[in-house]
């Protein structure tokens, strides 16, 4: 894929993600989905990073990383199956929506407690280095996560052991109702220096900028094997989740289609480069909508997981206590 194709492909993933995002939010409002954490506004950050990844790289993602997953080749079906919790869901309907697993694309399994994915990401990087394997580790999190002990532990350990980890802070300015200005007195990217690692600030709303900066940083990590903290600044255009009403705590909403919308910014830049025109944009959007609508209706028809699956996968081999409880309940 040449550069132009690669960038158009990135834009296409952003649109696909936005389309899916809106479909799920609407379905939640219609009572077809229980819950969702919209990802709208963070598409450029994630896709710009993903454009620099290789197949063997491991990703310890968080619950707002749908654009990253879609760009890397995870099918919308996988996302929708998880959101609905049907019997095709890899997680067998166990996790609430937005907590994905996609081992076939080297995505780990998402947990709710933020930043607890970071120390394991460092351990995985140690594994790669120790086993002399190829690849790097990507660990993603939001601005709120930077206050946790796990963030501190992970950055310190990655630096101390010289491990190939890209810490991507997706600074969308909000941790539910709590603004980033109150989360920390320092700039997030500058914290890297305190840990003895590189830190960089990038406009996470701009696909091309994000792609370029992430490329420089990831190339360095692949060469020197040392970690980096990338702070990509974007904006959480939606609520934290479908259970949240942002009008209670903020008035500065960025509306879809405004000039701060990463998709609008990408379109403007791609048009300037003559990579796409209005007709091509329209085609990409229509195709995405048709695809998502079709898949969503299809996946919704899949049955719920069987009750007995509740008692599977606690251990590799079950034990008498679990077996007895299954007998009592089912």
């Amino acid at each position: 894929m040449d550069e132009k194709e690669k960038i158009i492909d990135g834009y296409r993933a952003m649109v696909l993600s936005r389309t899916l995002d809106k479909k799920i939010v609407m379905s939640q409002r219609q009572g077809r989905v229980g819950f969702y954490t919209p990802t709208m506004g963070q598409e450029a950050t994630q896709v710009g990073l993903s454009m620099n990844l290789e197949d063997q790289d491991l990703i310890f993602e968080y619950y707002r990383d749908v654009p990253l997953m879609l760009h890397r080749g995870v099918k919308p079906e996988t996302i929708i199956d998880q959101i609905i919790g049907n019997s095709d869901d890899k997680e067998k309907g166990r996790q609430m929506p937005s907590h994905y697993t996609a081992k076939d694309h080297n995505f780990m399994s998402v947990q709710s407690p933020v930043a607890t994915n970071l120390p394991p990401a460092v351990g995985a990087a140690y594994s790669i280095k120790y086993q002399k394997k190829d690849g790097i580790v990507i660990a993603t999190f939001g601005d709120g996560s930077t206050s946790t002990p796990d963030f501190h532990a992970a950055l310190n350990l990655a630096a101390v052991f010289d491990l190939p980890v890209v810490f991507l802070c997706e600074n969308n300015k909000w941790a539910i109702s709590y603004p980033v200005e109150k989360q920390t007195r320092s700039e997030i990217w500058k914290k890297a220096e305190g840990y003895g690692m590189r830190g960089v600030l990038v406009d996470g709303n701009d696909l091309l900028e994000m792609y370029k900066v992430a490329k420089e940083e990831i190339d360095k990590v692949r060469v020197d094997g040392k970690p980096v903290l990338i702070e990509a600044v974007s904006y959480r255009m939606g609520p934290h989740s479908t259970s949240d009403d942002p009008s209670k705590y903020r008035t500065d909403d960025v509306k879809e289609g405004s000039d701060k919308d990463p998709i609008v910014i990408a379109e403007r830049k791609l048009k300037m480069l003559n990579y796409i025109d209005d007709q091509a944009i329209e085609k990409i959007k229509v195709e995405a909508k048709e695809r998502i609508d079709r898949i969503f209706d299809e996946r919704e028809k899949i049955a719920a997981p069987k009750p007995e699956t509740m008692f599977e996968d606690i251990f590799e081999n079950s034990n008498w206590i679990i077996d007895e409880e299954r007998g009592e309940i089912l």
Binding site: L58, F60, M108, T116, L118, P119, P120, A121, V122, G123, A124, A125, Y126, S127, I128, Y130, Q131, D150, A153, A154, L157
Partner: peptide, 11 residues
Amino acid sequence: GMAIGMSLTGL
């Protein structure tokens, strides 16, 4: 945490 990451990736 690191032990978990190691154990997820072949160790």
